[in-house]
Design a protein around this nucleic acid. Sequence first.
RNA 1: GGGCGCAUAGCUCAGUUGGCUAGAGCAUCUCGUUUACACCGAGGAGGUCGGGGGUUCGAAUCCCUCUGCGCCCACCA
Length: 858
Amino acid sequence: MEIAKNFDFEKYETEIYERWEKNKCFEPIKSDKQYSIIMPPPNATGILHLGHSIGLTIQDILVRFKRMQGYETIYVPGTDHAAIATESKVAQILGEQGIERNSLGREKFLEEVDKYVKNSQSNIIEQTKLMGVSADWSKLRYTMEEDISEQVQDIFIKMYNDGLIYRSGRIVNWDPNLETTVSDDELEYETKTDNFYYFQFGPVVISTARPETKFADKTIVVHPEDERYKEIIGKEFDVEWIEGTIKAKVISDECIDMELGTGAMTITPAHSLVDFELAQKHDLEIKQIIDLEGKIIPSVSKTCGGLSVKQARKKVTEILEEKGLVVKIDNKYKHNVAVNYRGGGTIEPQVMKQWWLDVNKKTINYKGKTLSFKEILQNVVRENEIKITPNRFEKNYFNWIDNLQDWCLSRQIWFGHRIPAWFKDGQIKVQIQSPGKGWQQDPDTLDTWYSAGMWPFTALGYPNTDLTDKFYPGSCLETGNDIIFFWVARMILFGTYVMNDIPFKDVYLHGMVVDKNGKKMSKTKGNGIDPREMIAKYGTDPLRLSLVIGSSPGEKLRLYEEKIATYKNFVTKVWNSVRFALMYTNSNETTIDNTKLNIQDKWILSECQNLINSVTENLESYRFSDAGNQIYNFLRNKLCDWYLEMSKVETNSAVVLHVIDACLKLLHPFTPMATTKLYSYINENELMLESWPEVKTELIFEEAKEMEKLIQTVTAIRRIKKEFDLQTDKQVPIKLQTQQKYIIESLEVIKKLSNSENIELSNNSEKLKLPSEHLSFATDIYLKLENLNNIQEQVEKTEKQLNKIEKQLTNFTNKLSNKKFTDNAPGDIIEKVETEKDKAQELLNNLIHKLNVLKECL
RNA sequence: GGGCGCAUAGCUCAGUUGGCUAGAGCAUCUCGUUUACACCGAGGAGGUCGGGGGUUCGAAUCCCUCUGCGCCCACCA
């Protein structure tokens, strides 16, 4: 059989994936143990980026691993409607064509959204497949499909009836650009340098960054302890202000920072969270100044009505300037301004009626206890019902939950799950169908995370229980550490509420993929890596390896092209070792005959069993990088460098095939493409590697450790030849003086691996007396003196080494003569130090001898 | 302001319960086409484990402290 020198990934990857799909390889196979992963649904807007790639790779490794272990496994894919992100994207696209969202109307606009989503959905699905993931596409779901929408609304109604959802006016983050509220979690803060204004306001100087909100400010707030203002607290004044004289009262509150500005401020309850809380506390009037488009309300101000925030700021300052009320303008004032991270505008706090989820009401029955959402969220993690990897994110999680406030559910956008609430003459009814004539449905939609939070069971087709009975709760939720609060916490909330059970047992969080300098990848900076490009250039397998090896859970991962190229080389190495193995073995000899094993056979078989054991353990405990590295090291440093080289002298087909088989299987979750193609040369009928290798204790041999001596001997010969510039000389006479059984038996192998044909066993080494110092057991290697080059150089080197070893030896000797050490240290450690000391002593003797011989030759 | 991390070879990172004479990959230097693989092989050089202090027979590992960097939350009239 002819096997190419390389894995031609361009030719085979699509073919392999299509064959898997056609043969339904990703569908569950009945078993008494189940494993399930629900894919975090990518936004229906997007294209595949590295954040997806790393998540998909880890999920697929888990799923393939468990499937091979014989679990009945499902991996459910889907896409998310990503309400705000999608709506603003479509609005932007239409805007570019000169079409206004509002003039198009709700229904027509949603039709456009649907068209857009359908198109980008199929793109993202195609790209997801490029990662080689073994997701069951027959179970594909979408968060906005009809069944799920119904569920979302039903659960809203249930929560409302349970008194967990209420409607109330509160200060919300209003985005005047997109004309919607934005949740606290969707805010980003930008540090801006703005003017900070000092105005004369009656008896005091107040400071503000927002003059345009100050039309109706009637309350001055100072700190109760502030000596400067103590006497005026509680008093009322006539104040000359923007549009004439107004009455203002001074109150005190401890929230005031005496150091900031003048230590006195006026409050605008409707447009600041702090002011709103103050107003409620002190029972003050809450008056709207700015409308929902970000303009000053005409009834509030004659002069500025209709002006934008920016224009009004300028105008108000001008008016106050004319009146001589401007004391000072500090133009270096730095503060944080909230913006909508979904590409919207600057947030304007507004007081509005919104739907809220009560997180503190203790009425939820969970596993026999009556608790609040907050308590359930705390309990399930505290009591280890759900385990988070890496563990430290549990602290983050608690920190967030402890400070959790009621969740604002409504969004003033069109795309999303419509809120099932109806209004008529101030009455409210919460139900799916219209209650009748004259009732208007709430135009708002639900926060994207409201439906995303139900994904663990809606993706399984709930309320249909065919799948949920078997696969809920999920085995592991794998996602990015950036959405632990957005999403993970909400899934726990809905899971426990609706299903009365946690949504998943484990949470595994990966970190963000960043560039070589640790910077976030971004399109505008041009430092991003496009996974599609990398797949086209290097193939899927190398990309997967580079995302998993060298990364630790939750920690950011630096990715750069050279790294991917490295793993491309590794895939080629795997390819060629299998190619070699198949070319020079007899495929009919598959039974290992224990009586025909030489030392290297026993060694590689034992090492292979250890490998199977530790890779399995590491995968069970989410240590993907360790598992991958172990296979990498075994294959390169043990199998290829030693065993396969040795098998060129003497081949045991059954052993080679056993080890290759295990390696391919262990690698398959990491590199499904190349391993599948390679396995097809061994077993044409197996479409996907189906079984996980078992550790066979009968293939672990006590003598395997003797191999170490063989390796040391070969290395020592290579090194001593290199030292004297003889590495290409096959005929240089070498004598080996040894009693070691396996070395004597393996003389031909040693010759081959050390590229030396003239090696003899000898007990009489008088004439060839330059020893190698590199052996830690009783064997000597001698070179003939007249063959030596570089003697002066080696003398210096040897002296340097000698120095180092002497220090080490002193170290060991001191340790062992230290009574405190021998009294306290455990026996095996003392023993270890003793052998280390003996080794060092022997090495020292060898070095002294070598140095003397070398000096004689000078 | 509150919380969570990180700092180990030129670069990227391992180092699980304290036992380390501190490892790997890439890069670098020397040498090499031999039954697979030059997308390869052999050998070498390269480190005060961020600084200081403490606990211990023993610290990269535990504690304190300082320095630098990153992330999350809160918030800035």
